[in-house]
Structure formats: structure tokens, C-alpha cells
Amino acid sequence: MPKLNQFKVEIETGEKGTALPVHFTINNHKLALEETGGGVGPGETFTGGFEIRSFAHSLTLVGPETGQWDIRKIKVEFDCEDNPPYSAVFGELTLDETTEVNIWQDPPLPTWDV
């Protein structure tokens, strides 16, 4: 797996919002997102990120401590060592106090014509 230098996340909230701060886990360590902007209320868009500089075995976005959080879309931009920057877009889901969502995507494999 590649070394994840940093990632940025953009989250579009659906009908049910939640409260800040937004937490993520890297290899099961829970942290708050940094350099945040926007909001996580209904219909709002939140942005944040983190400088990881380590190897990502798992990367998840953590659900709220109480209530539900409807997410319309999550876009994650990855900056990994020895790889060009890439991004992943995930679809609708609902998080709560019992769930977290996997937002890690391996860099795309190189392909070429032969």
C-alpha cells in the first residue's frame, strides 16, 4: 500500500444533518478533520482534510455520536507518495453512532496498450 501524504474530503449532507466536529479514523485512530470549511447541516457542504504522512491500512469517516447523518455524496482527494493525485466519489449513505464508512481507495492501477 502507498504512503498517504494527505487527503481532502468534501461531504454533501442530505436531509438529516449532524454537528461538528467531523471525525475520521486512520488505522483505527480517531481524529478530527482539520482545515475545515462549510457545514454539516441539512443541504450543506463540508470540507476538511488531514496531513497523514503514513501508510493507510484503513481510512473511515465516523458517524455522529447521536442521531443520524444523511450523506448525499463524499468526494475524497488522495495525495499518495509515488503516485499522481487521484480522487474517489462515494454515493448516498446514512451514518449513526454504530457506523463508520470506508473512504479509502487504492490508487488506480497503471494500464497501457500493448
Partner: peptide
């Protein structure tokens, strides 16, 4: 202990 959801990849 939270359950990890595997989201649908849109792109």
C-alpha cells in the same frame, strides 16, 4: 465498535 459501511463508488 462501529460497523464499517462499504459505500457505493460513483465514479
Amino acid at each position: 465498535q462501529r460497523r464499517v459501511i462499504q459505500p457505493a463508488v460513483l465514479i
